[in-house]
Simulated assay, not measured.
Amino acid sequence: YEQVRDDPALYAHASRILHKETNPYNARPLVQAHGDRDVWLNPPPIPLETEELDLVFEQPYTRLPHSSYGDARIPAYEMIRHSVNIMRGCFGGCTFCSITEHEGRIIQNRSEDSIIREVERIRDTSKAFTGVISDLGGPTANMWRVACKSKTIEAACRKPSCVYPGICKNLNTDQTPLISLYRRARAVSGVKKVLIASGLRYDLAVETPEYVEELVKHHVGGYLKIAPEHTEDGPLS
């Protein structure tokens, strides 16, 4: 620990080691000396199946800030109060981001029905709802149901990223399930607009031109967030 703390190059090296142990199906435990103790890091947990993730998201949450905030205005809450998280995880492996560490590199998907039920709950329970869903997204806007074509290959893979330096040939990049989800969400009674505010991976998006057309026609609220690895050199290297 002390060496990593004091040396930026070793810190980067340690981060890379961590990224290479993010596949829950083949990751090895990591041990770091920390003073007179050792810190043991277990491999990531096995991703939740869709039914399990639905169960997590459909608990009776209040969707309200903690009561200790009282009547205080919380800008971060107002930004996401009418948004819906449709998935967890990211396989981008970007050097500037820690999502892989706390959500996993394998995408965990909610079902379309579960997502629509949450949209309906927002409509029915939020007094501030004006008909606009501010986001259907997650760590990335368009990785929902994107996964490796082979469970066997996925379980053996040691690559930190599925999209760097190019999209892996084993990655299913089909975005048509998102088109179906967006259309169904737009059709919910009482919903006037569904925006996509999460950052877009357009290297994946352009693999399905119909998705880009659907997104731009119906779901862009003035600005479309583009993940920085598409415009800046270095973030994925």
Rank of each mutant, 00 (worst) to 15 (best):
Q3P: 11
D7E: 00
L10N: 10
A12T: 06
H13F: 09
R16Y: 13
K20R: 13
R28D: 02
V31N: 11
Q32W: 14
W40L: 11
I46K: 05
T50N: 09
L53Q: 03
D54C: 05
F57N: 00
Q59V: 03
L64G: 15
H66E: 14
S83N: 03
I86L: 01
F91M: 01
C94L: 07
T95L: 03
H102C: 00
Q108W: 05
S111K: 08
S114H: 04
I116K: 04
E118M: 01
V119P: 07
D124N: 04
S126G: 04
K127F: 15
G131R: 11
S134D: 01
D135K: 03
G138K: 01
A141V: 00
R145W: 08
A147M: 02
C148L: 04
K149R: 07
S150F: 05
T152R: 13
A155L: 09
R158Q: 02
P160K: 02
S161Q: 05
S161H: 00
V163H: 00
G166I: 08
G166F: 09
K169N: 13
D174I: 15
T176S: 13
L178P: 03
S180M: 08
Y182D: 01
R183T: 12
R183H: 11
L195W: 11
L195S: 10
L195Y: 15
I196M: 05
L200H: 04
V206M: 05
P209N: 08
P209L: 01
V216A: 13
H219K: 10
G222L: 07
G222A: 13
L224T: 10
I226N: 08
